[in-house]
């Protein structure tokens, strides 16, 4: 199972991304579990909206942070996220 570049990416239905004021961070919530996310992971997951494909995610974030060269970091993170079941690509 590895990332398909031509398929849209969305958060898996069993996971919920949520901003936590008390901890000042985004967390990923799922049955009996909680993952505290660093800022870059949270930024990427926020744009996994079921419409964006890999290239869209890269360009949205490069634009947002006025930078370039994010593709390999983002690809690496999304592969881990897919492996962990946080995101899916099935429609």
């Amino acid at each position: 199972m590895s990332l398909q570049i031509d398929t849209a990416i969305h958060l898996s239905p069993t996971y919920r991304l949520q901003w936590e004021k008390a901890q000042d961070m985004f967390v990923l919530l799922y049955p009996e579990g909680l993952i505290e996310l660093n800022q870059s992971s949270a930024e990427i997951l926020q744009v996994c909206d079921g419409k964006n494909k890999l290239a869209d995610i890269v360009s949205v974030l490069e634009q947002k942070f006025s930078t370039s060269g994010l593709e390999s970091d983002i690809t690496h993170f999304l592969n881990t996220a897919l492996e962990n079941g946080w995101i899916t690509q099935s429609t």
Binding site: E20, A22, Q23, V27, L29, E32, G33, L34
Partner: peptide
């Protein structure tokens, strides 16, 4: 919840 609890069983 106000203190930060987010998972509830």
């Amino acid at each position: 919840r106000e203190m930060g609890a987010v998972q509830l069983g």
